[in-house]
Amino acid sequence: MELRHLRYFVAVAEELNFRKAAENLSITRPALSKQIKDLENEIGVKLLDRDTVSVSLTKAGEVFQSDARTLLDLAEKAIERATEAQAGRIGKLRIGSVGVIATDFLPATLKIFNKRYPGVEVSFVEMHPEEQLDALESGTIDVGFAYGTDPLGQAEMDLLCVIKSHFGIAVSKHHPWASRDQVDLAETQRETMLCLGNGSRSHREEVNRFITEEGHPTPRIRSIEGFDSFLTMIAADQGISMLPVVLDLTTQGIVILPFTSKNIFEFKMWAVWKKDTPSEMVTHFIKLLEERT
């Protein structure tokens, strides 16, 4: 049994007239009659009582008509939803979370996105930025974020710069440096440097590389898992860190100070997504990010 059989039967059931139903369906009356007969033979149920002058539904036909209409409605809705999904207007968009660093652009972008595409359910997946390229490759997330001047390496991804800033020294508001205008990078050797993550593309690797390039010894570094824990440790004066000055963490008890050095420690954060045939949902989201940058 095919959907056309249901459409043909419902058309006849509504008109109770083969000629009118055939005209509505743009097929010939004999062809319509054969399709109805084929349907009755296939399901083994007589649906219509018919003679040379009239057509009427059997009791079984009345029940079948109601259910056939429901099935046709469901099929139509399925087609509509598939079309909406292909156009990126419904579905699920999974984004790699980067915590407070994204507060400068992400909440406003999501507000516009949700207004334009209310049928899309946005969810965040907690993970470090260095994990997000692998998550994009595996399909765990649809949009991720990465740091650094060359965040992709050999990955087949597209990217968009969403934040460009430079690093400063992040200290607790209770730290002796908190009231200073700036800090000499050499002074950080006496402190524990707190870093987020521990991978090859991690915050720790970036900080260690920069300090080494500046000609200073490798500092005493402590890696912290989880951005909330990382900020809590800084605010609790358990160490200092290096964070982009664009962040405003004063409400969390953290001050970010400029530091003197030979070079500027540049910070870039990128939105990253699969290069090959991104979904329309991803395309819509990235377009909104572009409009804000």
Rank of each mutant, 00 (worst) to 15 (best):
F285D: 01
P176R: 02
T52Q: 12
D51W: 02
E131W: 08
L57P: 05
K34E: 09
K173P: 03
A21C: 09
L48E: 05
S66A: 15
Q132P: 10
A186E: 14
E225K: 07
G61D: 11
A22M: 02
M193D: 00
R7W: 00
E80S: 10
L6K: 04
G168C: 10
I234M: 04
E290L: 02
K173F: 00
G96V: 02
H216S: 05
F105Q: 01
L196M: 12
R209I: 00
V143N: 03
V122K: 04
I211Q: 00
E40D: 06
S54V: 11
K268E: 12
S200R: 07
M233W: 06
S279E: 02
K164Q: 15
K37N: 03
G153H: 04
K268L: 13
E126C: 03
R19N: 09
A11Y: 02
E2F: 02
D150E: 15
A271P: 06
E290G: 07
K275P: 04
L185M: 10
L25S: 10
E214Q: 15
H166V: 01
N208C: 07
D134C: 00
L288I: 14
N17K: 07
E137M: 12
V171S: 07
I221S: 13
L57A: 08
E205S: 13
V45E: 13
G153M: 04
S165Y: 04
F18S: 08
P278H: 07
A22K: 03
V183N: 03
K59R: 13
A85I: 00
H175R: 10
D181T: 13
T251H: 10
I256T: 08
L72A: 09
L160R: 02
K111Q: 15
I79P: 00
Q189C: 00
T251D: 14
I254M: 05
K262Q: 13
I286A: 09
P244V: 11
M281P: 03
I90D: 01
D49R: 15
P129K: 03
M193E: 01
M1F: 10
A78M: 07
I211M: 10
H203D: 08
M157F: 12
K111C: 03
N24F: 02
N198P: 00
D38A: 12
T28E: 13
S200F: 07
G226W: 06
K164C: 04
L194D: 10
E266F: 02
R222L: 15
E291F: 01
C195P: 01
V63Q: 13
R94V: 15
P258L: 02
I256P: 09
N198H: 13
H284N: 11
A146M: 13
E213S: 13
E131A: 13
R209P: 00
L3N: 05
L25K: 06
S66I: 14
V272R: 01
A85D: 14
